[in-house]
Design a protein around this nucleic acid. Structure first.
Lengths: 202, 202
DNA sequence: AGCCTCGTTGAGCGCACGGTCAACACGGAG
DNA sequence: CTCCGTGTTGACCGTGCGCTCAACGAGGCT
């Protein structure tokens, strides 16, 4: 008897924990509410009592993932770095390291990303997350563009920020599906390109 | 009566055409063999007669997608370009343009990519496709590294090629889910970075 | 004690879908 | 014409899953 009359918030956490484990093991494609309940040691009806529908549960899981995953958010330490280019390098290192440390969370993010193609609510959250991500690169982009305004006249800060995001997401696309993908080599190459930027802004 | 006793190859093409349409409309998540048969105007049993199982049908669809999609293959015209950096620009332009012209195929590729996380046969094909893709950038990467060997001593051609692939895939990750994503701005920013490379190799 | 609220249960309904199969139709070989 | 192989059909089965619901039980309030 795994506890009766638990508080609502506590129960929801238990269920979300179980949902996260099920989603990681089976993927969203084979994500079944029954399995979540079983893993949490609860009845299926109770899960539907707290989350009215499967879609609601998935949305709550996505919100929880985005809130608790530092992967896609900026840590305070990195936000404190003043130099834009050093922030760029720190972000790049943080994200590429997490690809090997927490592949499950990244995979789950991409599962939701794909789900967002067909589900409006999910799509909105993924879009917001990517926009937040790009916003973190805006200071870097602006300082780069300010260094050579005539050469980069047609380049927008948002465009440059989206390139930076593409670096990381594109690395994930390759590494998530291929454990032999050499992330270290990718990181070195990216560092070299940043060095090019430094030469241009200096 | 949509034709009886068609040749095996012809029937398979009809079924694959229908499968492609169903996959594009419903996504692989809701891909049902029944729907494929209905769209092709055939019975469900016949689909299973030509493709023993749903997985077989999906694999055949993936093979067909990779063969017929120039998105992920190099067109002969681009292969003919001698200058590595111009090839890079041509590839970049071709791929970013296709993101707006054929979003369905790119979406389907990513659906298979995700399916590959849990299906070994699919994973093998996706890995091979990404490897082929990186191989196309090897000449560019090698010429860049040869220009400044001491600065890029720790950078491998494969690593630099994977960065190039990340450019494109990372752009797709953002644009596929957000029709307001400004691909033109991304292209301009990427062009500017290539210009930096040119300055370094010159 | 009596009762009301509400967290909790698990059997069960309805449906969608993968896969099967007995029957059938058509064409060609003998 | 008969017979056989093969393309073709669609009803059907089994299963898995989203979701419901009647029933239960543990506090708390009067």
């Amino acid at each position: 008897m795994p506890g009766r009359k638990a508080s609502e918030e506590q129960r929801k956490r238990e269920i979300l924990d179980a949902a996260f484990q099920v989603a990681q093991r089976q993927g969203l494609h084979h994500f079944a509410v029954r399995d979540v309940a079983a893993r949490a040691g609860l009845s299926t009806g109770l899960v539907f009592f707290h989350f009215k529908t499967k879609d609601d549960l998935l949305l709550a899981l996505l919100d929880w993932l985005l809130e608790t995953t530092a992967v896609l958010r900026l840590s305070p330490e990195i936000e404190a770095i003043a130099s834009p280019l050093e922030r760029l390098l720190a972000l790049l290192r943080q994200e590429t390291e997490r690809l090997t440390r927490e592949p499950g969370r990244i995979r789950l993010f991409f599962e939701f990303w794909l789900l967002g193609l067909r589900n409006r609510a999910v799509r909105g959250r993924i879009r917001a997350e990517l926009a937040r991500y790009r916003a973190a690169f805006r200071p870097i982009a602006e300082s780069v563009l300010a260094a050579e305004p005539e050469r980069f006249s047609t380049v927008t800060p948002e465009g440059l920020a989206s390139v930076a995001v593409a670096f990381i997401k594109g690395c994930a696309v390759q590494s998530v599906i291929d454990e032999r993908f050499d992330i270290e080599a990718f990181r070195h190459a990216a560092d070299a390109l940043v060095a090019q930027l430094e030469a241009a802004t200096a």
